[in-house]
Deep mutational scan, measured.
Amino acid sequence: MAEAPPRRLGLGPPPGDAPRAELVALTAVQSEQGEAGGGGSPRRLGLLGSPLPPGAPLPGPGSGSGSACGQRSSAAHKRYRRLQNWVYNVLERPRGWAFVYHVFIFLLVFSCLVLSVLSTIQEHQELANECLLILEFVMIVVFGLEYIVRVWSAGCCCRYRGWQGRFRFARKPFCVIDFIVFVASVAVIAAGTQGNIFATSALRSMRFLQILRMVRMDRRGGTWKLLGSVVYAHSKELITAWYIGFLVLIFASFLVYLAEKDANSDFSSYADSLWWGTITLTTIGYGDKTPHTWLGRVLAAGFALLGISFFALPAGILGSGFALKVQEQHRQKHFEKRRMPAANLIQAAWRLYSTDMSRAYLTATWYYYDSILPSFRELALLFEHVQRARNGGLRPLEVRRAPVPDGAPSRYPPVATCHRPGSTSFCPGESSRMGIKDRIRMGSSQRRTGPSKQHLAPPTMPTSPSSEQVGEATSPTKVQKSWSFNDRTRFRASLRLKPRTSAEDAPSEEVA
């Protein structure tokens, strides 16, 4: 009796068929016929556990003709996506030579605008209408194809895939403007070719909807975003200037109206006075309405000098805001240009540092100066060695804690006790272990408590650290204090090793 083939788990290929790579489910599931010992083939499952149809090819690079078809379809799909992405970037994010197409579109729109203006002049109306009709045909074809291509290429973005995504893309403001202008152009052409009475009025009214094509030149909205950011950044200043200017306008108009309503027919109503105030304070000055009385002229002159300053403030605020924003954008561009080279330089330096163990090129690091100058660790070890030599091999803490019996001779020589300023008595072995921070803190506390006492003391002649007598400086308080830590004499004296002298005989010792 033939044995059933062993159940295979995992992703390994079956024996005897090495080139074939078959994806098997996580659990080997066989058909009921196979479990019962029949000759049925096992049921194939996909990666998600769903059964595959009987005629479906197995996924994998070596699955025969199905694999070749899959490779061809995958390559075609990649080319399709690449083309779609390229078209989308050309239309929505132009760079380099892609601006040539947008310059061509701008020339078409500008020519249409010029011809629309010439069509309103009686001398050039006939020729402009003929040229404009031909140009409209060209623009309908160009913009119609462009609109379709834009909607198709938007599928390269995830949020615009599918018919719902394309509809979302078509609802964008600039796409809506394109659609309105396209419909208006078709209506103008249809009305112009019919030759009816309505054609002339339709051409004159709907052609100027094509002015909206100038708005579509900035599809990404960079200028509007820049203007919005400047207004938002200086909103408080703008609101303040406009508010005060509006108050000056209504008060000036009302007072001039009261002064001129009886003697001047131009100011017969408050609305006429508001019109005069707006034209005057905005420095336009049509001259259609002028005050005639001396009181009205004085009020107009005073409020004009006051109001023009507030009406001119928004222009200066926006101008300075634009300058600052442009400078910030230039700085951001320079930062973006330098970020990648800086990151590459840091990575290269780290690779060199991690692979080169000698690091002989590091001549400006802490390790280099640590090898030249005595390190703080060596100074600490030197302090501890000196203290243990004086205390008979014991550390200062051990000397303080060691009990001394009554009447027993002390094995240590008597030492002079010292007192730290602002604290109780402490171990004499710690007097010379006072660090730089303690010395600086002690000097600052003395300056806070009594700076007036220092200038009363007789001035001391500054001497070099080499000429100081070591026996005289029994305490860190003898170090000359200065008002600034930048004094080199104080810094050098604080680094010197001060020996400890006994109370009975204080021989001067120098520590090399």
Rank of each mutant, 00 (worst) to 15 (best):
M1T: 04
M1L: 03
M1I: 03
A2G: 07
E3A: 10
P5H: 09
L9V: 08
L9R: 03
L9F: 05
L11V: 05
L11Q: 04
L11P: 06
P14T: 11
P14Q: 06
P14S: 15
A18G: 10
P19T: 04
P19L: 10
R20P: 06
E22G: 03
L23Q: 13
A25G: 14
A25T: 03
A25V: 03
L26H: 15
A28S: 05
A28T: 06
V29A: 05
S31T: 04
E32A: 06
E32D: 07
Q33P: 04
Q33R: 11
A36G: 09
A36T: 08
G37D: 08
G39V: 03
G39R: 03
G40D: 05
P42S: 06
R43S: 01
L45I: 10
L45P: 07
G46A: 11
G46R: 08
G46S: 06
L47P: 05
L47I: 04
G49R: 09
S50T: 08
P51H: 06
A56T: 11
P57L: 14
L58F: 13
P59R: 08
P59L: 12
P59S: 08
P61Q: 04
G62C: 12
G62A: 13
S65L: 09
S67Y: 06
S67A: 11
S73C: 13
S73A: 10
S73P: 11
A75V: 11
A75P: 14
H77R: 06
H77D: 14
K78M: 07
K78R: 11
R79G: 14
Y80S: 12
R81S: 14
L83R: 02
Q84R: 10
W86C: 14
W86R: 03
V87F: 12
N89Y: 15
N89S: 13
N89H: 11
V90E: 04
V90M: 15
L91M: 12
E92G: 00
R93G: 12
P94A: 02
W97C: 15
F99L: 10
V100L: 04
V100D: 01
V103D: 00
I105R: 00
I105T: 06
F106I: 04
L108V: 07
L108P: 06
V109D: 00
C112Y: 06
C112W: 00
V114M: 03
V114G: 06
V114A: 15
L115M: 13
S116C: 05
S116F: 15
S116T: 10
S116P: 05
V117L: 07
V117E: 02
L118V: 08
I121S: 06
I121F: 07
H124R: 06
H124D: 04
Q125H: 05
Q125P: 05
E126Q: 10
E126A: 06
C131W: 09
L133R: 04
L133V: 13
I134N: 10
L135F: 15
F137I: 06
F137C: 10
M139K: 02
M139V: 15
I140S: 12
E146D: 08
Y147F: 13
V149F: 12
V149L: 15
V149A: 15
V151G: 02
V151I: 12
W152S: 01
S153T: 02
A154P: 01
A154V: 14
A154G: 02
C157Y: 15
C158G: 08
R159G: 15
Y160S: 00
W163C: 06
Q164L: 04
Q164E: 05
R166H: 07
R168G: 06
R168P: 00
F169C: 01
F169S: 00
A170T: 11
R171K: 08
K172T: 13
P173H: 02
P173S: 07
P173A: 04
P173R: 02
I177S: 14
I177F: 12
I177N: 06
I180S: 06
V181M: 09
F182V: 03
F182I: 07
A184T: 05
V186E: 00
A187S: 06
V188L: 04
I189F: 04
A190V: 12
A191P: 05
A191E: 11
G192V: 02
G192S: 04
T193N: 04
Q194L: 12
Q194H: 07
G195D: 04
G195V: 05
N196T: 05
N196K: 05
I197L: 06
I197N: 02
F198V: 10
F198S: 01
S201Y: 07
A202S: 12
A202V: 04
A202P: 03
R204C: 12
F208S: 08
F208Y: 04
L209Q: 09
L209V: 08
Q210R: 02
L212R: 02
L212M: 11
M214T: 07
R216S: 05
M217K: 01
M217R: 01
R219H: 03
R219G: 03
R220L: 03
R220C: 14
G221R: 01
W224L: 09
W224G: 00
W224S: 01
L226R: 00
L226V: 00
G228D: 02
G228R: 05
S229L: 08
V231L: 15
Y232F: 05
A233G: 10
S235R: 03
K236R: 13
K236Q: 09
E237A: 00
E237Q: 01
T240N: 03
A241G: 01
I244F: 04
L247Q: 01
L247M: 15
V248G: 02
V248E: 01
L249I: 03
L249P: 00
I250M: 04
I250S: 02
F251I: 11
S253T: 04
S253Y: 00
S253A: 03
L255Q: 00
V256D: 00
V256A: 00
Y257S: 02
Y257D: 01
Y257F: 05
L258Q: 06
D262N: 10
D262E: 08
N264H: 02
N264K: 01
S265T: 04
F267S: 01
S268F: 02
S269F: 00
S269P: 01
Y270D: 00
Y270F: 07
A271T: 04
A271D: 00
A271S: 03
A271V: 03
D272V: 00
L274P: 00
W275L: 01
W276S: 01
T278M: 05
T278R: 00
I279V: 01
T280P: 00
L281S: 00
T282R: 00
T282A: 02
T282S: 03
G285S: 00
G287C: 00
G287A: 01
D288V: 00
K289M: 11
K289N: 01
T290S: 04
T293S: 00
T293K: 00
W294C: 11
W294S: 14
W294G: 03
R297S: 01
V298L: 12
L299M: 13
L299Q: 02
A300V: 02
A301V: 15
G302A: 10
F303Y: 02
A304V: 02
A304S: 03
L305F: 11
G307R: 00
G307C: 00
I308T: 09
A312P: 12
A312V: 00
L313Q: 02
A315G: 12
G316V: 01
I317N: 01
I317F: 08
I317S: 01
G319A: 03
S320T: 15
G321R: 00
F322S: 00
F322C: 01
A323V: 02
L324P: 01
V326F: 06
V326L: 08
E328Q: 07
Q329H: 01
R331G: 00
Q332H: 02
K333T: 01
H334P: 01
K337N: 00
K337Q: 01
R338P: 00
R339T: 08
P341S: 03
A342T: 01
A343D: 01
A343G: 08
N344T: 08
L345I: 08
L345H: 02
L345R: 06
I346L: 11
Q347K: 10
Q347H: 07
